[in-house]
Design a protein around this nucleic acid. Sequence first.
DNA 1: TTGAAAGCGCTAACAT
DNA 2: ATGTTAGCGCTTTCAA
Lengths: 324, 324
Amino acid sequence: MSARKAKPPVTLKAIARQLQVSESTVSRVLSGNGKKYRISAKTEKAVLELARKWRFVPNPLAQGLRLNRTQTIGLIIPDISNPFFARVARQIEVEARQAGFSIILCDSEEDTSLEIKSLELLEARKVDGFLIAPVGETTDHLQEYARRDWPMVIVDRYLPEIKLPYVSSDNFKGTYQAVKYLLERGHRRIACVQGRTASLPNRERVRGYRQALQEYQVAIDESLLVGNDFGLENGYIKTKLLLRQEKKFTAIMALSNLICLGTIRALTEEGMEIPRDISLIGFDDQVYCEYLRTPVTTVAQNEKEIGSIATKLLIEWIQSVNPV
Amino acid sequence: MSARKAKPPVTLKAIARQLQVSESTVSRVLSGNGKKYRISAKTEKAVLELARKWRFVPNPLAQGLRLNRTQTIGLIIPDISNPFFARVARQIEVEARQAGFSIILCDSEEDTSLEIKSLELLEARKVDGFLIAPVGETTDHLQEYARRDWPMVIVDRYLPEIKLPYVSSDNFKGTYQAVKYLLERGHRRIACVQGRTASLPNRERVRGYRQALQEYQVAIDESLLVGNDFGLENGYIKTKLLLRQEKKFTAIMALSNLICLGTIRALTEEGMEIPRDISLIGFDDQVYCEYLRTPVTTVAQNEKEIGSIATKLLIEWIQSVNPV
DNA sequence: TTGAAAGCGCTAACAT
DNA sequence: ATGTTAGCGCTTTCAA
């Protein structure tokens, strides 16, 4: 028994009874198939009117059970409190809602085993498809879902071994242009603090870095390419180490916003001033960037576009596979 | 028909057939009521084993339809891309998951009519309760749900006219202590740029501001208390105006992080330096605060705690009303 | 043009 | 200790 004050629920059956017609007729009208089944104009009108008067809303649980379609998308994010993901998520929600889908949100806490659990949970809940920004340690579980033909679009972090649609900003171009900018300003020894090395965004960003240097005939000093995580810690520690090793470099390319903050902290602690002593470019624009102690140049990512494209892609897939 | 490669679904019925027992028996065992119904150890064991072997997972749609309980919470947030809400949301998701609930996420885009639509959508989807950070323009729709005894907990923004559980940080204490801090350092003319004046968090923050001043016997100059929105624009414009009016003040209390950024922008444009020319305290701590051009002092909010308490409150309510 | 009936997967009251 | 049955609300095939 529901706790809500019990009004008799507005169901197809109730409407049918009131109108002295069958449930099927009501169903046909209300799912817009009145014409198709050649329901008489009179009946159709009566049903429509009563449904609106009684504020009939179909029960999605019943529909889902019957149709194996829930108008629901499972969204799995490694950390929804990361502003980048939060912005992507917002656009996903907006876009999905406009297409008549709801979002079930799962935070995998950057933990592959929770990612797997989330997939299972969402599968049990009969979502129509997945939008996932994978943790990225392993990919077997994703492969498995791909193999079973689940509509699934990967966001941001990609794992090249899986063949699934994938949406992210142009990571290559981002660093490519940023590093070129530095080169044009005369920098030749440019350090780079990267994120998780296995992830495609990171690989692409590094590729942009290499490409730019190469075009300027600058030999790449591998000892200036450090790091393996997108977090603040990594930026901090790796920058410290770079400075300790007395590597000579005049600029740093930080491959995420958190890395960038860590780098700033390290530089500050070591008494370096930006841009007086060193230049710094970060990745992933944020509202607050322009207010940083030092207005750090950043490569903007378009979260809205990422979210929007991913959602549209997924919904198209869902609908092609399981038309309404 | 589902698009997924069709394996015969693992249902109670399938298990029952295989084991030559009735569906009810299987159901009883699998919902942990074996003892209660005194199912024989042998039968129980067989069911359990097959269920695990076949990886049986009950269908939540069917359960929901039958039980009027979906183990689902509707979360309505005015802007999930706001880092404050994103962090609250994360904790909510984590906490809810641990209690066996899923989150359906709706972003009301700071729009009351979308907030109403979200409520209706979630109600139709038979969520067990709501967590909502209301837009706050009007409250009739919330009243209505409260009246119908829906489990619902308000987060962050409160509307005192509704009597519903409400969770936020201690807004009063936040500004109270911040302003006292300024007073202790000799400031006497302290401007305050506030957020949406109708909202309780804002009112509480303003109350803290007034209280602190009062305790220091500082008469309150109402012309130093300006603003009416939590956004960046408001901080920017109101600060500009304060400066233009040549009001004398030596410190500014900004009642949100976005207001604070707007204030920084305005001060910077006017050539004021923090803290040389003026002191500034913001509300709502952020990772990036310590990296701001000027390390602005801020009042921290504990998003984790807010999310955690709100979720626990709601789930307790749900379970008291509709025990498992 | 409409109705009857079956069934999606599950639970619970009522047998026995 | 377990089975039978009805039903949650909906869609759809088959029949009329």
